[in-house]
Design a binder for these strands. Structure first.
Lengths: 184, 184
DNA sequence: ACAGCCATGTAACTCGTTACATGATTAC
DNA sequence: GTAATCATGTAACGAGTTACATGGCTGT
């Protein structure tokens, strides 16, 4: 029946399984706040077109009252989401790491520029970590076994672990680069 | 002058800065072997079209003898690569993690399926790690300061650290899930 | 001789982005 | 009243994928 949709569609559909119906605008905010750490933050325009597609497939319904059009899962949507989770193999994570890419080429720019880049990255990692820690805190109180945010809290911790490790390895690399520098 | 190319173009261009000229086919192999760990493994057809574009921009030249057409950096290409490294800010890494995404939705499938997924992921991480360790080993002997693979070896270690941490956090999550399960 | 790898592309398509456009509501 | 935020789209484009097509060379 319904051909497999892109993963991002299921991701957005999944965001509708928590709590109340959301407008496209709110859904975008959720994605920016949480989904972006382990998937993507789709553009506003894509959120709306995905919602239209999900609606065309009967996976979401428009709950039309209030400010704007709020969307919620249909029974069909929930079934399809479960089917997808059960049937489709996840595949391996994909990391697009522009800093690592540039580090590979650092011979072309020299150690000073490299260290500067790594310092800047380290700061960015800290900021990102702070943002995710706030998300993690916001889930407290509903993160016990059987509660709504049980699994989401695990995902948040996964992300925190990733960012913590990222900070650590960058610090290690910086130390190593510093040690290699000739005394001046 | 030359508008900024996509990052993947510079990544492929960068692979040509090590050692001898490469054919499109060989370049694809390099990308599959190394670049895929922190950027992407572009499709065969994309490698060829990127090479054509780079050639059209005068950033690579065809070294036509031997089996097939080998490509190497031009002076212009090296200058452009350096310019790009110096001028364009790297941006933050993007992680697309289908396992984390599914973990977020695990309430829909229950703990058994979740544990199974995490076990499978853990194995995949081990395989990936083994592949990257082999790459790391292949760089030994040329990874000292000032040598060709100095920076690439750092990138490999970065990746190994990432995969090691990934394995650890998944083991922790599995333990946590196991502890939550009612005695049966 | 046949399988498998080396080698190079074209065509069709989809995902996702940026830019553009519009208007309503809310806060100050 | 005017700026910011809420709200929803369309259009054009580009990056990257899969499927298709072709042919030479190599080992057995």
């Amino acid at each position: 029946m319904s051909q497999d949709l892109p993963v991002t569609s299921y991701a957005l559909l999944g965001l509708l399984t928590f709590g109340e119906p959301l407008t496209g605008y709110e859904l975008k905010q959720r994605a920016d706040r949480t989904l972006r750490f382990y998937w993507v933050a789709p553009a506003m325009s894509q959120v709306y077109s995905e919602l239209n597609r999900l609606h065309a497939h009967g996976l979401v319904q428009k709950d039309g009252q209030g400010r704007g059009t709020a969307y919620s899962l249909t029974d069909r949507g929930e079934r399809e989401l479960k089917r997808w989770l059960a049937d489709e193999p996840p595949g391996f994570p994909m990391l697009k790491h522009p800093v690592a890419l540039r580090l590979m080429l650092s011979a072309l720019v020299g150690p000073e520029a490299t260290e500067q880049m790594l310092h800047a990255h380290l700061e960015a990692v800290h900021d990102e970590r702070a943002a995710l820690e706030e998300v993690r805190r916001s889930l407290e109180g509903h993160d016990g076994p059987g509660e709504v945010f049980h699994y989401p809290s695990m995902v948040a911790e996964w992300g925190l672990s990733y960012l913590g490790n990222e900070a650590q390895i960058v610090r290690d690399l910086l130390e190593r680069l510093g040690a290699e520098r000739p005394e001046s």
